[in-house]
C-alpha cells in the first residue's frame, strides 16, 4: 500500500459518501444517473467474487464489503425509496447501458489473464468500470446545470482514478514484477473520460461560479 493507492481509495470512499449525503440530506437523486449506479453495483459484485476465495487483508475485505453494500443501497434508494425515486431524471437518463455490459463481457471473454470464471468476471468488471461513468456524463450534459454535491461526487470519482494511475506508476517503478496491463490500460481510458468534466470543473472553481456544462 503506497500513499497514492491510499489516496485513491479514500477519494473513492469520499465520492460514495458525498453521493449518500446528497441522497440522504436532500431526499433527492436529481442529476444522478441510475444507470451508472447500476453499472457500479454490477462492477463491484462481479469483481469481488474473490471475497470468498482469497483473503488479502482486513482493510481489503472491509472496503470490498463497503463498496458492494453502498452501491446496492444507492440503487435501492433510486428505485424504491418513495421520495428519492420521484426526483430521478428518468427522461434524461436514456443511455443504453446494456450495450456497455454486453460489450464489456464480450471483451472479457477475449481479453483476460486466465480462462476461469473468476478471472473473466474480474476482467469484465475492469472494462465495465472504465465506461460506467458514461451515462452519468451524458445526463449532466443534457441537464446542463450541476448541483454542488453532484459536481463534487464526480470530482472525487475522477480524483480516485487519477490517484490510481499515480499508484501504478509508483508500483511499476518500485516493484520488480508489476505488470497489470488489463487494469492499467482500462484505468487510463477511464480517467481520460473525466478530462472534459475536469476542465469545466476547474473553470467554475477558478471563476468561483456554478458548474455548467456546455450543451
Amino acid at each position: 500500500m503506497n500513499i497514492f493507492r491510499l489516496a485513491g481509495d479514500m477519494t473513492h470512499l469520499l465520492s460514495i459518501l458525498v453521493l449518500l449525503l446528497k441522497i440522504y440530506a436532500t431526499k433527492s437523486c436529481s442529476g444522478i444517473s441510475r444507470k451508472t449506479q447500476e453499472l457500479y453495483a454490477i462492477v463491484f459484485v462481479a469483481r469481488y467474487l474473490d471475497l470468498f476465495t482469497d483473503f488479502i487483508s482486513v482493510y481489503n475485505t472491509f472496503m470490498k464489503v463497503v463498496f458492494i453494500a453502498s452501491s446496492l443501497a444507492i440503487v435501492w434508494c433510486m428505485r424504491f425509496h418513495p421520495m428519492v425515486r420521484r426526483s430521478y431524471d428518468r427522461e434524461l437518463d436514456t443511455f443504453r447501458h446494456y450495450f456497455l455490459v454486453g460489450a464489456s463481457f464480450a471483451l472479457a471473454l477475449i481479453l483476460h489473464e486466465k480462462f476461469t470464471v473468476q478471472e473473466i468476471f474480474w476482467a469484465f468488471s475492469i472494462y465495465l468500470e472504465a465506461v460506467a461513468i458514461l451515462p452519468q456524463l451524458v445526463l449532466l450534459q443534457r441537464s446542463g446545470n450541476v448541483d454542488n454535491l453532484t459536481g463534487q461526487y464526480i470530482f472525487f470519482l475522477g480524483a480516485y482514478r487519477a490517484f490510481y494511475i499515480l499508484n501504478w506508476i509508483y508500483r511499476y517503478l518500485t516493484e520488480p514484477h508489476f505488470t497489470r496491463w488489463i487494469a492499467c490500460v482500462s484505468g487510463v481510458v477511464q480517467t481520460a473520460l473525466y478530462a472534459d468534466f475536469f476542465y469545466y470543473y476547474f473553470i467554475s472553481w477558478k471563476n468561483n461560479s456554478k458548474l455548467k456544462l456546455p450543451a
Binding site: 493507492r5 481509495d9 482469497d54 487483508s57 472496503m63 474480474w122 490510481y164 514484477h177
Partner: peptide, 10 residues
C-alpha cells in the same frame, strides 16, 4: 509466482 496474480487492489 502466486504473488503476481493476487489482486490486491480494489
Amino acid at each position: 509466482v502466486k504473488n503476481q496474480v493476487v489482486k490486491d487492489e480494489l
